[in-house]
Design a binder for these strands. Structure first.
Lengths: 219, 219
DNA sequence: TGCGTTCCGTTGGGATACCAAACTTGTCGG
DNA sequence: CCGACAAGTTTGGTATCCCAACGGAACGCA
């Protein structure tokens, strides 16, 4: 058999990861069909894990499924990105402000480590590694915020986040913004964070919207 | 067979609704087991729709599932309710402020209709009807906010919301608070909303926390 | 008695085969 | 050009079977 013998990992989790990466990395284009049987055959599994994976990705907002037809990779419109940004601004402000108020030394060290991984990868031009580290920066911040619900939310957002980051060209600029956030969190400077976050998001947002109008993903 | 012939509704949707109501209405207690085979037998369906339903409810945050064991109805701790409140404050503020800025006359009329249904039900002592109308008040507000992502979020939150409302005894007080919100939205008075929402949430929050410490749901 | 270990029944994850409902799509006729 | 219709696809669901992993209780040991 194919990838057997890895670990006790559930097939549905594996399939989810494969499909998610396919989508985020652009190997499955927005609008393309996700047909259970075909995917099951490709990955040497039954339709069941594929079904679960598709549900999960619908929950993460990168797949659209209507009853009794195929699901498709979601096509993000300019409007979707704008909506996402509005919500993200509120959530991330909450996260970083709470993180500033509640972080421990141990947690801060992990946050700094993620930033340093991101910076190193960005400097070396390792695009995917930088994006993953950037995602972790956000996830760790949510943990520092000491609010499980925020972590849960970020967990769902992070796929869309990866998609957005995929559109964000200037990795070094993003790392620099994360440095400023890191320092504000360390100094417990919530006032600075409250005006900094919207700006931070705006830069990634603009890049995504620009890219979108170029490639005309929307219908 | 049992409830066949209703409509083209998907079994998984029906099962989800049944389980959700069981949980929110307290017919399935926090901590009680959700065993696929048993539930499937109870509802005369196969295990698949039950599986999907449980996944959905995990997504809505009212069920906890670990791999390869039974799922359980979530036990909310005081901390969970506090975390939820913090996030909800940010999201709902966003919703009502945007609703105030962006609502149409038609939308406002629907919001008022929901409020009036809530008030009527609360006055008549129809608890469940009042709670449903209160939930719709929030959902319609999210629509008025003109941000699909907010609607999506509320859609996920609404089950937990119903659970919280289940702890909220004074239906008339809640309806009165919704009237104040409704008026502020109508007047596009965002400043008032920004300080009103936290107060509105706090009242429901307190009731939930009080009830929790009485019944000692947590471990 | 207190505690770690072993063992067995239970339970979910997955595979396979099959069917019905309904969604797509292409075709034909007005 | 548009709508009705027919054929092919695809999902949702059922029914079974199997296995690995988990939970819990009995057991043995210190």
């Amino acid at each position: 058999m194919a990838g057997v013998g890895t670990t006790g990992e559930l097939e549905s989790v594996r399939v989810t990861r494969v499909l998610r990466d396919d989508i985020v990395l652009g190997r499955r284009a927005p609008g393309s069909r996700l047909i259970e049987r075909d995917i099951a055959a490709e990955l040497n599994v039954s339709r069941l894990p594929v079904r679960e994976a598709i549900r999960t990705l619908v929950g993460e907002g990168v797949v659209v499924a209507r009853p009794r037809t195929w699901a498709v990779v979601r096509e993000f419109t300019r409007r979707d990105i704008q909506d996402f940004g509005e919500v993200r601004e509120a959530i991330e402000t909450l996260i970083f402000v709470f993180a500033a108020e509640r972080h421990t030394d141990e947690g801060l060290a992990r946050l700094r480590a993620a930033y340093e991984r991101e910076l190193a990868a960005a400097s070396a031009g390792e695009v995917e590694a930088a994006r993953i580290a950037a995602g972790e920066f956000h996830e760790i911040s949510a943990e520092l915020a000491g609010n499980d619900m925020l972590s849960e939310l970020i967990g769902v957002f992070v796929t869309r986040l990866r998609w957005l980051f995929g559109q964000h060209d200037d990795l070094l600029a993003m790392a620099e913004e994360h440095r400023l956030i890191l320092e504000a969190v360390e100094a417990r400077d919530t006032d600075t964070l409250r005006w900094m976050i919207p700006r931070h998001l705006a830069s990634g947002q603009e890049a995504a919207e620009r890219r979108l109008s170029d490639q005309a993903y929307s219908i």
